[in-house]
Design a protein around this nucleic acid. Sequence first.
RNA 1: GGAGGCAUAGCUCAGUUGGUUAGAGCGCUUGCUUCACAUGCAAGAGGUCACAGGUUCGAGCCCUGUUGUCUCCACCA
Length: 867
Amino acid sequence: MDKVYNPEFEKRIYDFWVKNRYFEAHPNSEKEPFTIMMPPPNITGQLHMGHALNQTIQDIITRFKRMDGYEALWLPGTDHASIATEVKIVEQMKKEGLTKNDLGRDGFLKRAWEWKETYGGRIVTQLKRLGSSCDWSKEAFTMDSNCSNAVVDAFVKYYKKGLIYRGDRIINWCPSCKTALSDAEVEYSEQDSYLWHYRYPYADGSGYVVIATTRPETMLGDTAVAVNPKDERYKGVIGKMLKLPLTDREIPIIADDYVELDFGTGAVKITPAHDPNDFEVGLRHNLDVIRVMDDAGVMNENAGKFKGLDRFEAREKIVEELKELGLVEKIEPYKHNVGECYRCRATVEPIVSKQWFVKMKPLAEPAIKAVKSKKIEFIPKRFEKIYFNWMENIKDWCISRQLWWGHRIPAYYCDDCGEMVVSKTAVDVCPKCGGKMHQDEDVLDTWFSSALWPFSTLGYPKKNKNLEYFYPTNLLVTAYDIIFFWVARMIFSGIQFMDEVPFSEVLIHGIVRDSQGRKMSKTLGNGIDPLLLIDKYGADALRFSLASGIAHGSDTRYSDDKIESARNFMNKLWNASRFVIMNLNGEEASVPKKLNVSDKWILTRLNEVIRDVTINLNKYEIGIAAAKLYDFVWSEFCDWYIESQKTYLYSEDEKLKSHSASVLRYVLEQILKLMHPFVPFITEEIYMNLNPDKSIMIQSWPIYNKNQMYRKEKKAFESIKNCIVALRNTRAEMNIPPSKKLKFFALPSDEAMFKKLTPYLTKLANVSEICVIASKEEVTEKCVALVSDSVEMFVPFGELVDVEKEKDRLSKEIEGAKAEIAKSTSMLANENFVKKAPEKLVAAEREKLERAKDKLEKLIEKLNMFN
RNA sequence: GGAGGCAUAGCUCAGUUGGUUAGAGCGCUUGCUUCACAUGCAAGAGGUCACAGGUUCGAGCCCUGUUGUCUCCACCA
């Protein structure tokens, strides 16, 4: 083994795992399944830190469950990402001077599939570098035949149940992508703008009404002005006609509760074709719907002389003309939220258009119930509130997209009579009039297919063994940003088509921010490429740094320090293993019958860690488990156990050497197994070094063994640790060089136990001689005295002792002991404490007080020795 | 407008159901090339647990309020 940890073995090991098909899961009646569906990354995607975190968490859980005896399936795949991919390809074509229409639908799709073949696998290759143990034999793609069948099946079933309809509604329109968007696909951001106040003159010339608007260009589509029926200011004018400026139309003043009394002027222009609220008002009052913009956001023929102008140019022009007409009352600076397309950032335009919708209320109801009844639990729980809030206020889901890349809507229209048929298979002839049928041009929202992911990937709608065995799945692991897009929709889809919720637990994690806490983004250029980190530090170091310090649902920060620290930990594990291996002489990992105090201590601690880490992992407390392992491996196994064993390993006694080597190997192998889910590569490399051709990833998870719990020896060893620390401490304070061997007198409380522990003292505190005494009278030299629970130590430093310094030190210790006594005394003097606190605690407090008193007494004696 | 998170050492964060003198990593200071590891070892400095109340024998933890900060949802033209 190399002296320094070098993760170059990662690729070899991953290939080994894949070759041996260790990641694959199959229906197995002997075992319970544990299934995780991977959130499918977009085929346009490049691995980023968010993926790395998401993958690390899923892989830790999958590997743990696999070792813990489950048939663990982690099913991977990719998403066709309809809009994102189409945008990318169109951009690419633009560079060649091509447009979608140049290629036509078939030509474009051919190109899109080629693009998918070229780039779609890139993200998958990248995921593999993280060590993800997913079952690649089941890899799915949202547009493969399985998933596409599921989409068509779901659409038709929804339609037959009356849960999908087609109609003219106001939807969010992206004039740049030229498609409808769902509500979830619009992101709002506050922008500086103006609130324009205009005069709309009465048709009879008797004056005017002032309206306020943030979007002057839509005025050309106004079909009314609304006021609140309770508004005294407008009591008499309801029903009167207004002359709509810049047009030859007249529009009525109507009364509607929707209008707020105290905002703006109390009079609102109503544009049903370009505002969701106005659309509703329009329905209530039977108003005309006049679209003034086309699909590209350019003013259309209804805009009169403004036709052909871009919407923002039109805004300026209209304001200018109104000014000239003297109809502008005032212009106030105003901040308001503007909706943007989540893909291309263009300002979204609410537009009335004919689209397909999923009726949400009937779907939301059982989906809410599923979480309320705890069939599904969110971890942490607070995200359930967010989920309920969304589900309870949900509006119908616009699912049609005016794109080509995606699942084409399985609806067919007759060219002659207009008859519509929704069908799983192509319909060429109209069942009504025999005319020619053509398929709907639109495709489905990309999230329509992802909503089916937990069962479409397992072969739905075909009944099969995988679906039967692995569905419903156990756990979904995702960041909080796609709860609405994805998690919620999977829940109602699962209930709808499988009659069962798709998973029982949803583990929500945060996002990875930069070292300053900012979101990583392309525009900020603060993104960190995980692949570069893997090259530099290794995937294990990246995984461990991500796993450390994460808590359910909270964000985490990336920093170079963190990953370096993780890499150093890998180096520590590597070198500890190297040390153990170097000292092996054919020993197996075994626990001898007769154990010494250090063995009993490390075994006790090992079992405590096994118990705790198992509990933590079962609760998905990955950050806590990682911290416990880090501390145990570094601060206990390496710093104390390995160090203590040197006294045996460097002795001449072959039996002692061999005994120590066996236990070291045993504990190390248990550690490797506990660490494996977190850092699979290094643990596999070391394990195979110890056990050629045996893979660690298919070994059993360590089991807590209460027969290896030795409380007395644990206490004894820990107390000797304290003595050693005290000696080192004193040495440092007294400026005694570490190389100088110490001699001292010891007055132990339990002599037999103390004698068992002296070898460690000798080795770890660099002590040459310990003279066990029965009474402090035997100490004649000038000494530094140390008091601990189990032993009093008198260290003759001779000339090196600085009397004043030592007196200071003792005085400080005395102060500490006094403070402790004072606190314990007052606690015990409190009747309520003695009466109400658990007996165990009161007893512990009494014992503590006794110990402190004893210590104080001894310390005072010591101090007196100097006076 | 509504909902939620966070506030603990210089920085990043732990702190499980309330119970020793509140911990770790990084950084800082000091000393060590001790035969697994300088990606290391040892020692040290550093905290009014945001603020104000309350519950309790006991509060970093539970409750109420305040302040700061971040996020999500809704959206009044």
